[in-house]
Design a protein around this nucleic acid. Structure first.
Length: 823
RNA sequence: GCCGGAGUGGCGGAAUUGGCAGACGCACAGGACUUAAAAUCCUGCGGUCCGUGAGGACUGUACCGGUUCGAUCCCGGUCUCCGGCACCA
């Protein structure tokens, strides 16, 4: 046990020293190139989990590497500290959300320090602190002023027994998952941010994000969901109004055999004729309102509808087509109404079959296997137009263009683009969030709080019962106020903001975290932004990353952000698994960071988590693997300490004389090159570490030689410590000091690679016969193709293999191989 | 259903531009040291077969096929797993 190093003592010692020396402090230094490295800040749930350790270990390696390469690195940390768990803790344990949250932050900050992460804690932000949410509210008001924050009445899930709004996830089978009552819909006024105004730019911007994983960009693209089509107005028999629909298939207009409206469509009730129909329609609409949005929009829900008794007129051919109300039409997409073309749409087909509605094919697949007159399923692919009057014979793609042009001429319809992206509902009927800084006055309507009165503070005279509406509604001191415009009695908004708003601009706040005059100074933001590298879990691929992009674009338009896209490069790290599954309390397979640090130290924990898998992949936790990482660190330490006497007074330079020297020099420089590329270039930390391991193995062999050059040994030891230091900083500081260096490894210069050492005099060449390796020969480096061919064909073994046969072809690749093809 | 991604030893993984498959580590086995164990150090480690032996032959990157002198890598098809979206007209 004496041989195993005392990580506890070493790590505490260096952490103390780093803190005392302010080693991680960032300075605005225009003379150096900046590098802004950011990891997604955590929710202060109480303790770190392995996912955090992974996320922040990855970040710290990059931060330290960039520092050592001379960059001025901004590497901040903070807390996404508003949110429901704090409120739940208040309900369950009676501890105030702010107290609970601050305690957790204290605990987790300690854990982060215990991991030796190089954060500049002077820039720490916590979104729940008034100093932060003041500017959150300020930014909200900017949205309001630009007309991008608005209040709209919309149906939301409402549990009559708990008297609260429920998230869709809290409604299971139409029933409240807490109390079991049937959940209804309630029209509630909610605040929205008009992210849809930015849909086109959010989509376009993706193309320029070359440093983002394609997967994330694709997910965002699908989420934004741009579709190009046409708006068409249908006349309604007996009504002056026109019925507007959106379609992506204007080419199929002649095939429309019914219309379908969303139950919430403003015309839905108006078009119903006859008492019997009214009753049926009421029942139908009533039934749908009991369903949650999730169930309503489930693709598995059987298509149902009711006929209104009214008819629409096809603007192209005058055909009279029945209007239905149908459960599969969404009120808030497109026009909330469609023309249904059963022949060429899966859903319309299903509906038409059920209600015996005509099916008119208008696109001919020109495939003998498909009987177009008796379709078994909708035909949605491409083909030639039929049954479409003057458009017959065109390809359906051409036809879509032609019909749209024609409709524009005749003023029946026009080209239209629709997005799947909806406006962002940001109201939360919760306490622990930033209050929406709006005031309602009977006379003046909604007015923002005056800037000098910000922040609108959360009140402390509240009770947490977990029942009823938000505690803010119950707080008179909070609610009652004066109208900022007319001074009359007015009421504050009692909803708070979705916490995703807080995290949509925190990266800007870090550039100037203590500013009390503005959310952040423009100069500071200009120097640091954009974030050069962002690292976090893939679960944020859509929401957080889309919202952050939206905010940044808005702030850019407002002249506040210097950039339009916040994150130049993005790394989405994989999950940490145990026994093939997610670590979870219920399965009982959680490995806590604390326990690992206790047993092996922070350096081992970091090393293992970086070595076990590439960062973007899932990582399978392995206890024996951790043991192996710890063993490796001990092995390095033994090596360095064993050599320290030999290298202490060694010269700073060396000359390679023996084959052993060359090999060692090669191994050394190869490791430098590989680690540099793997950290700085492709973020492949596992292979960087294995390169260091190889170098350690080489050094173990080399030190056995009596003739080993002390200068080379010294260079190897020094560079080994430096190469390893971003991964395991504590033990490297200790070894750095032990080998006679002053100052921190973090301030040392990153080693450079001597390319000349990587050029070997002789290289091994593989000789293949018909693509199969048969022999290896050593030749001088740089031997030409002809030389290689000669060397290969003269080789005794190869001649024997050829057995007198002549080669049909010989391919020679200098430095690599010779392939002899015989028939 | 649609859209992505991935399948390599007992395991985690490597092979960066089409050129030696399995780096590095874990596990395992054998050896050295030790009274013994642990620790450490050394050796072996895809499969099948041949050879007393040094060594050699064949085969092998989910499966089938293609392109190529040469394929883990490119193309076509199949299977499996994972992820995202899911009535978006």
């Amino acid at each position: 046990m004496l041989d195993r190093y005392n990580f506890n003592e070493i790590e505490k010692k260096w952490q103390r020293r780093w803190e005392e020396q302010g080693l991680f402090k960032t300075r605005e230094d225009e003379s150096k190139e900046k590098y802004y490295l950011l990891e997604m800040f955590p929710y202060p749930s109480g303790k770190l989990h392995m996912g955090h350790v992974r996320n922040y270990s990855i970040g710290d390696v990059v931060a330290r590497y960039m520092r050592m390469n001379g960059y001025n690195v901004l590497h901040p940390m903070g807390w996404d500290s508003f949110g429901l768990p704090a409120e739940n803790a208040a309900v369950m344990n009676g501890v105030r959300p702010d107290v609970w949250t601050r305690e957790n932050i204290g605990e987790m900050r300690g854990q982060l320090k215990r991991l030796g992460l190089s954060y500049d804690w002077d820039r720490e932000v916590a979104t729940c602190e008034p100093a932060y949410y003041r500017w959150m509210q300020w930014i909200f008001i900017r949205f309001f002023e630009k007309g991008l924050a608005y209040k709209k009445k919309n149906p939301v899930n409402w549990c009559p027994s708990c008297e609260t709004v429920l998230a869709n996830e809290q409604v299971v089978d139409g029933v409240c998952d807490r109390c079991g009552s049937v959940v209804g819909k309630k029209e509630l006024e909610q605040w929205y941010l008009k992210i849809t105004d930015y849909a086109e730019r959010l989509l376009e911007g993706l193309d320029r994000l070359e440093g983002w994983p394609g997967k994330v960009k694709l997910m965002q693209k699908n989420w934004i969901g741009r579709s190009v089509g046409a708006e068409v107005d249908f006349a309604l028999e007996g009504f002056p109004e026109k019925l507007r629909i959106f379609t992506t298939r204007p080419d199929t207009l002649y095939g429309a055999t019914y219309m379908a409206l969303a139950p919430e469509h403003p015309y839905a009730r108006k078009l119903i004729s006859g008492a019997a129909r009214e009753k049926a329609a009421d029942e139908f609409i009533g039934k749908l309102q009991l369903l949650s949005d999730i169930d309503r929009t489930a693709a598995t829900l059987e298509k149902e509808g009711v006929f209104t008794g009214s008819y629409a007129v096809n603007p192209l051919n005058g055909a009279k087509i029945p209007v239905y109300i149908a459960n599969y039409i969404l009120a808030d997409y497109g026009a909330g109404a469609i023309m249904a073309v059963p022949a060429h749409d899966r859903r319309d087909f299903e509906f038409a079959v059920k209600y015996g509605i005509k099916i008119i094919p208008v696109v001919d697949p020109e495939d003998p296997e498909i009987d177009i007159q008796n379709l078994k399923e909708a035909f949605a692919a491409e083909g030639k137009m039929i049954n479409s009057g003057r458009f017959n014979g065109l390809s359906n793609k051409e036809c879509a263009v032609k019909i749209t042009e024609y409709m524009e001429q005749e003023k029946i319809g026009k080209k239209s683009i629709n997005f799947r992206l909806r406006d962002w509902l940001i109201s939360r009927q919760r306490y622990w969030g930033a209050p929406i800084p709006m005031i309602h006055c009977e006379k003046c309507g909604w007015t923002p709080e005056k800037e000098e009165n910000l922040p609108v503070l959360l009140p402390s005279d509240v009770e947490f019962t977990g029942k009823g509406e938000s505690p803010l509604t119950a707080s008179k001191t909070f609610r009652e106020t004066a109208c900022p415009r007319c001074g009359g009695a007015a009421e504050r908004e009692t909803d708070t903001m979705d916490t995703f708003l807080d995290s949509s601009w925190y990266f800007l706040r870090y550039t100037d975290a203590k500013n009390t005059e503005e959310p952040f100074g423009k100069d500071r933001a200009k120097y640091w932004m954009p974030v050069d590298q962002y690292i976090g879990g893939v679960e944020h691929a859509i929401l957080h990353l889309l919202y952050a992009r939206f905010f940044t674009k808005f702030l850019f338009d407002s002249g506040l952000s210097p950039v339009e896209e916040p994150f130049t490069k993005l790394l989405t790290q994989g999950m940490v698994l145990k026994d093939g599954g997610k670590m979870s309390k219920s399965v009982g397979n959680v490995v806590s960071p604390e326990e690992i640090i206790e047993k092996y130290g922070a350096d081992t924990a970091r090393l293992f988590i970086l070595f076990a898998a590439p960062p973007e992949k899932e990582l399978e936790w392995s206890d024996t693997g951790v043991e192996g990482s710890y063993r490796f660190l001990n092995r390095v330490r033994r090596l360095v300490y064993g050599l320290s006497d030999r290298v202490k007074d060694a010269p700073g330079a060396y000359e390679t004389k023996t084959p052993e020297d060359w090999k060692m020099d090669y191994a050394l420089n190869y490791a430098v090159k590989k680690v540099s590329e793997d950290i700085g270039g492709r973020f492949s930390f596992n292979t960087a570490i294995s390169a260091v391991m190889e170098m350690v193995n080489a050094l173990y062999r080399y030190r056995e030689y009596e003739s080993a050059d002390p200068g080379l040994l010294k260079a190897a030891v020094d560079k080994l410590i430096l190469l390893l230091s971003p991964f395991t900083p504590h033990i490297c500081e200790e070894m750095w000091a032990h080998t006679g260096h002053g100052g921190s490894v973090l301030n040392a210069e990153w080693p450079s690679c001597d390319e000349a050492a990587l050029v070997m005099d002789r290289v091994e060449i593989v000789i293949q016969v018909n693509g199969k390796v048969k022999e290896r020969i050593e030749v001088e480096n740089g031997l030409s193709q002809d030389g290689l061919i000669r060397a290969a064909t003269e080789n005794a073994k190869v001649r024997k293999l050829l057995d007198g046969k002549s080669a049909a072809r010989i391919v020679a690749v200098p430095g690599k191989l010779v392939n002899i093809v015989i028939s």
